[in-house]
Amino acid sequence: MSRFAPGDRVSVAKAFPPGHVRTPTFLRGLTGTVVRHFGAFPNPSLLAYGMSGQPPLNLYQVVFDMDDVWDGDGEYAAGDTVAADIYENWLEAAPQSNRKD
């Protein structure tokens, strides 16, 4: 059972836990939109230490506006985006965007 569906706005936890994680620092604390749900995969933070990775975690592709990520400090065009694959334990529901899309 997945918690999020395509189109949902989600925020990435602004967390810096020790150990092995697969959530890039540059996206932590930001809000994006779920593009797709890939299924559930063993937890990489547990697999990294030789454990079974159970229970598995839902994995989503989440897309972010470049402007939300870099606030102009980059080399991209107005509508450009960056998407990453993020496990459900890093995501929280966020209000629908009130920005124009």
Binding site: R22, T23, P24, F38, F41, P44, L59, Q61, V63, Y76, A77, A78, G79, D80, T81, V82, A83, A84, D85, I86, Y87
Partner: peptide
């Protein structure tokens, strides 16, 4: 062209 959205896919996990 800037009218085309460039979408960078960061292959962070099992995909």
């Amino acid at each position: 062209p800037t009218s085309t959205e460039v979408r960078v896919l960061d292959s962070t996990a099992d995909i």
